[in-house]
């Protein structure tokens, strides 16, 4: 059981590791020098996953 609890703790730590410093933090200092190029227009999730591999050629 001790091993199990340690394992659970480890995964929790792994999960939370990504959140380290994850409290919402505003910049201490922000200097705006210039505006960027034109604004974007897509909305969240519109892109979706893409087909990322070509079909294999039937060479075998």
């Amino acid at each position: 059981m001790r091993k199990f609890i340690a394992a659970i703790t480890a995964v929790s730590a792994l999960s939370l590791a990504g959140c380290s410093g994850s409290e919402v933090q505003e910049p201490v200092e922000q200097i705006v020098v210039a505006e960027p190029g034109k604004a974007a227009s897509a909305t969240s999730g519109e892109t979706g996953p893409e087909q990322i591999a070509e079909p294999e050629q039937p060479a075998e």
Binding site: G21, Q25, P27, V28, E29, Q30, I31, V32, V33, A34, E35, P36, G37
Partner: peptide, 22 residues
């Protein structure tokens, strides 16, 4: 850094510094 080409923003984020540019 403010006068460097293409610079848009300079931020002190507390644990790191970021420069945003073109």
């Amino acid at each position: 850094a403010k006068d460097m080409p293409g610079v848009q923003q300079i931020l002190n984020m507390g644990s790191f510094i970021a420069v945003v540019a073109d």
